[in-house]
């Protein structure tokens, strides 16, 4: 299938002289979060893996700031020639536009290239906490409304939206304490300044392994291999399966041949052993959707999150 795609690209390339040259110089991949973070890790590993089949280097440039919206805006506003693309995440693309005015809105204002990975969300407590299960925790929250504090890595993150969704559906009052990223929230959980935390599986893993923390609930369609004892929200009767996903995007109007070439190289990179190994240790599930499939999922996320943002009154 991919070989057929490649053949099609080659044929197209031969037919159209202008496209024949793509890529004639390195491609800039803008990562809207700082070097060393989770998304940077995916971007750099992807760039390395793409080198093996993409004729020119894919150079990662970090353009952090304002919850990823600055780097993302730069991608969307770049010249649509296939030489500036971006890595992005569901919240940057489908939550932030509902919170503020940005140069991009729905998925028709940019060109999705490929879905890369999913990142699950779980609810964790300290291991010396009295609640052995999510039901215990929710029961305790019902008994003393507002007493239990739950951290998120920030207002408007998918982790926050899931928490608010859980509160509504379970009819409990939990005190939400937002931090600026989970690197700040985890010390607060471990130090007992909040009772529970919304985190990604890999973030809490070292503390679970060290016997300091326990995962109670997973916001996924299926139980996680990493935490098989933690039920899904669905099992408890709450249909909350929102995860985080990363994808590649290009500015709207990027030549289809360029999008296709980038897509094909990234698709092959997803199967690269080094990329697969990185994904496993970092708790990412490699997941694939092509440009159309990705656009469809983004449209759905965009609609759902608009509703959530409105219901929670997050738009100032």
């Amino acid at each position: 299938m991919t070989r057929l795609g490649l053949a099609a690209v080659l044929w197209l390339a031969a037919a159209v002289p202008a496209a024949a040259q793509y890529p004639e110089r390195p491609v800039t991949l803008i990562c809207p979060f700082p070097a060393g973070g989770a998304m940077d890790m995916v971007a750099r590993n992807l760039g390395e893996a793409m080198k093996k089949t993409f004729p020119k280097p894919v150079v990662v440039v970090n353009r952090p700031g304002a919850a990823g919206t600055i780097g993302n805006a730069e991608v969307v506003q770049a010249r649509p020639d296939g030489y500036t693309i971006g890595i992005s995440a569901v919240a940057v693309l489908t939550v932030q536009p509902h919170l503020t005015d940005l140069p991009y809105k729905g998925p028709d204002t940019y060109a999705p290239i490929i879905k890369l990975v999913n990142l699950a969300i779980v609810l964790a407590v300290r291991s010396d906490a009295p609640w052995k299960s999510a039901r215990d925790l929710l029961g305790a929250a019902k008994a003393s409304p507002g007493k239990l504090r739950v951290s998120t890595p920030g207002v408007g993150t998918i982790l926050h939206l899931n928490l608010e969704d859980l509160k509504t559906r379970a009819g409990v009052d939990l005190t939400h304490v937002p931090f600026a990223g989970n690197a700040e929230a985890l010390p607060a959980l471990l130090g007992g300044h909040v009772e529970a935390s919304m985190v990604h599986p890999s973030e809490i893993l070292p503390h679970v392994q060290a016997g300091k923390a326990r995962v109670l609930l997973a916001f996924e369609p299926k139980r996680l291999a990493l935490y098989p004892d933690a039920p899904t929200a669905r099992e408890l009767g709450f249909e909350i399966t929102n995860g985080v996903y990363y994808l590649l995007i290009a500015p709207k109007g990027t030549p289809p041949a360029a999008v296709q070439a980038l897509h094909d190289a990234a698709r092959r990179a997803q199967a690269d052993p080094a990329f697969v190994a990185m994904a496993r240790t970092r708790g990412f599930d490699i997941d694939y959707l092509g440009p159309e499939g990705m656009a469809a999922q983004l449209r759905e996320s965009f609609r759902n999150n608009e509703e959530l943002v409105k219901r929670l009154g997050l738009r100032k």
Binding site: P34, A35, G36, G37, M41, R44, P206, H207, A210, A277
Partner: peptide
Amino acid sequence: PATAILLGAFVIHGLTPGPL
């Protein structure tokens, strides 16, 4: 910020710094 980059370097190599 500087130790965040060091954390990234640990992770690149499949290591998870932490209590263990």
